[in-house]
Design a binder for these strands. Sequence first.
DNA 1: AAACGGTGTTCTTCAATAAAGAACGATATG
DNA 2: CATATCGTTCTTTATTGAAGAACACCGTTT
Lengths: 263, 263
Amino acid sequence: MDSINNIGNQDTYKKTTYVKSLKKALDILEYFTEENPEWGISDLSRVTGLYKSNIYNILLTFELSGYIQKNNQNGKYRLGFKFLDKSYIVSRHLTDTEIIHEALLDLSRDIPETIYYAILSQNSAIYLDAVFPSPSRFMPFVNGITAPLYCTGLGKALLSMCEDSFIKSVMLESDIKRFTDTTITDYEEMKKEIAITRKRGYSIDNMEHEYGVKCVSVPILDRKGNLNGAISASGPSLRFTDDIIEKYAELLIKTASELKNKL
Amino acid sequence: MDSINNIGNQDTYKKTTYVKSLKKALDILEYFTEENPEWGISDLSRVTGLYKSNIYNILLTFELSGYIQKNNQNGKYRLGFKFLDKSYIVSRHLTDTEIIHEALLDLSRDIPETIYYAILSQNSAIYLDAVFPSPSRFMPFVNGITAPLYCTGLGKALLSMCEDSFIKSVMLESDIKRFTDTTITDYEEMKKEIAITRKRGYSIDNMEHEYGVKCVSVPILDRKGNLNGAISASGPSLRFTDDIIEKYAELLIKTASELKNKL
DNA sequence: AAACGGTGTTCTTCAATAAAGAACGATATG
DNA sequence: CATATCGTTCTTTATTGAAGAACACCGTTT
């Protein structure tokens, strides 16, 4: 099985033949976030501007298939276990995961920080693996976390391998938030940043997403040169001096080039 | 957050107000299985009996939202990474997982077999955690595996806490396959089996799903008596003698009763 | 006890659009 | 070179998604 290069198919948006009722229903699922996992019919109606009966019918249909389930304790709706089922099928067929996990473990011996692996999906990076410097810093459920592309090391590493038109659409058409005072929110500035990243071979997250957290990341390509994902080392800014960042970058680049022959 | 007792809402099926185009689209996703992860438009059209243009538009819409992605190498479609994203939100809010994982680890000290935890979702058990007797028997990606209810230890333990009408619908309205010569495919026989399970307090999988694999399982209830899930010990039939099964059952029941006060 | 404001749910009615069906160009096959 | 099959596009019409009002229900408040 080959690696998958999904650059979030922007062209598809221009087509008009998509099923509008389906798109609308899928858009409703986006309201069920980590911060807001449960919704009532009326709340969703208010926030979407759709009629209650409309929301009701859509949620009922999702419930029918297990994608939404009703919390009988409070009558509210939440995402259903069916997503676990489906996500299993997705991850099961990412055959390169064992190879990449080995590479992360190797890196972890030289880098006493958290090592991440993420892939590109639509306008986000999705974490698929992580290795922690010590058991105490272990985080359950990293798999599936989504992170923005424009303000993370992994994101910018992924972007550096994408076409300029995609970078443009991310900066101009997707939701851009200023998380810290170093967050890059301007398209022209991002163009320069990506140019530097491409030339240098690695990306740096200079506390652009979280104060006090820095990160260095490189893209992973497969044998054919297609983008597979990105790996990163991430930790407290105090430990991430320029020297250290450069040292980690070299290690990451070495791993990336080794992986290129295996994927 | 309370435990969720989803018994696959059979009543919903009787309602006619659901969104048919959405249901149809969601049904198409079911064709993307572990065995058959990739589909072309024509193949799906053949197997579903729907028009190619219809399938095309639906897949296009799913692709738009990241639930389907096209494999550019062979032009076929597969499930998208969006499911990973959503499954993360689902598992993130299963707050009892840490407590249950601790319980599995404890059990693992007394039982040198694979210990599973699964919950009920629709007509399936979904694995949410596993602890392995040795690192060599480690299996990545257990989370999200679905297993049938009628022929697994976990499934029958879950069923034993469900209403009879649900058991009936599982046996008569869902897809029942004979995996081995001990698989229970008849509703009347299952009624007896569940009666025994309820009386005994634990279920036994006597190679009903796989030759050579036996399993013993008990349901997990929360403080209020609602079904949370089930835990099991599973391994080669040669090691699962009647004595051993009874011993493991006692340990599982002890764990279940301890969990009852914590959930 | 009665009135209120909130909820999720049901019903009907009509305009929107999902889906049928044919046709397209591209690619593969023999 | 002809045939088969693929994904994709187009148009047409009958289905049905969604508006909108009304419903029953449950707590609070009056």
